[in-house]
Simulated scan of single mutants.
Amino acid sequence: MSAPQSFSKSDVSIGIDIGAPADAAPLAIDPARLQRQELLRLEREIAARHTGGGMWGYSVAALGGFALWVALFPLTMMGIIPLWIGFVASTVLATGGYVTSHEAMHSNIARKGDPLRWLNELVGQVSTIPLIFPFSMARMMHLQHHYHCNDPERDPDYPDAAPSAWKAIVKTWLNRQPRNGGSIHHYKKILAELDSPASRRAQRDTALLQLAAMAIFFATAWSGHALAVAAVWWLPRHIALSYIRFYLSWAPHHPRTGQGRYGNTKVFKSNLGHVMSMCMETHIIHHLYPSIPNHRTRAAYYEMREILAARGVDVSAL
Rank of each mutant, 00 (worst) to 15 (best):
P74D: 09
A67M: 05
P74G: 06
V60N: 03
A67Q: 06
T76Y: 08
E43F: 12
G65K: 04
R36G: 04
W69K: 05
M78W: 15
V60A: 11
I85M: 15
L68F: 05
L34T: 13
A67F: 07
I85P: 09
L63Q: 04
A48G: 04
G64Y: 05
H50A: 04
A61I: 06
L27N: 03
P31K: 12
A71H: 07
T76W: 05
E38R: 09
A32M: 02
T76E: 09
G65M: 03
P74H: 02
L75M: 13
R33E: 15
G64P: 03
L39N: 14
A48K: 10
A48R: 15
I85K: 11
L42A: 14
L83E: 01
A62L: 01
I81L: 08
L27M: 06
R36F: 05
H50P: 00
T51L: 00
V70C: 10
R36I: 02
I85D: 11
H50R: 06
L68Q: 02
V70N: 02
L68T: 07
H50L: 05
T51W: 00
D30F: 01
L42K: 13
P31C: 04
W84Y: 09
L40I: 07
E38P: 00
A71R: 10
L39V: 13
P82G: 10
I85V: 15
W84F: 11
A61L: 09
E38W: 12
V70M: 13
D30Q: 04
S59P: 00
A67W: 04
A61P: 03
E38M: 06
P31T: 10
A62N: 01
E43L: 13
L39S: 08
R33G: 14
W69Q: 03
T51P: 00
P31M: 06
D30S: 08
G53Q: 02
M78C: 11
M77C: 14
A67N: 05
L39F: 11
E45L: 12
M78S: 14
G53I: 06
I46K: 10
R44I: 08
I85F: 14
A28Q: 10
G54Y: 07
A67E: 06
E38S: 10
L75P: 02
I46N: 05
G52I: 00
Y58N: 08
Q37R: 14
S59N: 03
T51F: 00
R33T: 14
G57T: 10
W56P: 00
A61K: 01
Q37Y: 10
A71S: 11
L72D: 04
L34H: 08
W69A: 01
R33K: 15
M78D: 13
A48H: 11
M78T: 14
G54A: 12
L68S: 03
L83T: 01
L40W: 13
A62D: 01
W69P: 04
G57F: 03
F73P: 07
H50D: 01
E43A: 13
R49C: 07
G53R: 02
L34C: 10
T76C: 15
L42D: 10
D30I: 02
A47T: 04
V60K: 02
H50M: 04
L63I: 09
A62E: 00
L75V: 08
L39E: 15
A28F: 07
A28S: 11
W69Y: 14
A47K: 13
T51H: 00
L75F: 10
G57A: 04
W84H: 13
G65E: 00
Q35V: 12
R33L: 15
L27P: 02
A28H: 10
